[in-house]
Amino acid sequence: MTGTWLLVLALAVPPAATADDKPTHEMTDAEKAEQKAAKKRAHEAAEEAEELAEETAEFAEKLAKRIEKGNEQRRKDTEEAIKDFNDRVKDYLKLHKKAAETLPKLTGEEDPATVAAHRVALARAIRTRRRAARRGEVFDAQVVPTIVERVRGELEGAEARPARKVIREGNPKFDPEGTVPVLVAVNAAYPLGAPVSTVPASVLLVLPPLPANILEYRFVGRDLILIDTEANLIVDYILGAAPPLPAR
């Protein structure tokens, strides 16, 4: 009997309230409307984000295509500029050969005096044929940026320190044996007493190759010159092609 009363009491008395309990109440219409609006806003924001992502991807794709197109164009321009440069080198080579044909051919048995006289005569014959030559005739405006970019690509930065050191070797403006003034001008003779700069292999390997034993790239200070080694003649040049070189 007592047990039954206790059970009744227990069911009648509500359990003690806890801290977690929240007051429960019916949502008002205003609250419901706000909740609905919030859901809608979230949905819209998600949609907007999705659209934006799509647009961004589309833009990135278009940009990549434009960059690729630009690169392709630049490659074509570079190839064209180098092709034109190679053609001008070939033209020079023809001119050199025609000038050489007017002179007795060296057989390799000559004494130094004959070789020297041949060199002077060849230079004279080439100068006559290139009387009107100006700076940029071989290194034209189209190819200069490419060549400078390639030269600097191999000579800038900490890793290129050994290459920059190489350029100073024999460079008439830096040589420890004494500097020699070299007039950098089209058709100027490279002074016989001047040392000849070493050109780093890394630079030579990225520049358009030149006909062996006739034309060479060399540096005078920071200027890149194109020299006819047989005639000892500066054919063309690019001022400041190399980056600033260290004092030592």
Partner: peptide, 21 residues
């Protein structure tokens, strides 16, 4: 050839370079 040599030394018979660098 050294850095003080004119590349035309390759034609000097006594150096036996036969016109080659």
């Amino acid at each position: 050839l050294g850095n003080h040599d004119n590349p035309n030394q390759r034609f000097y018979k006594q150096f036996n370079m036969n016109g080659e660098r």
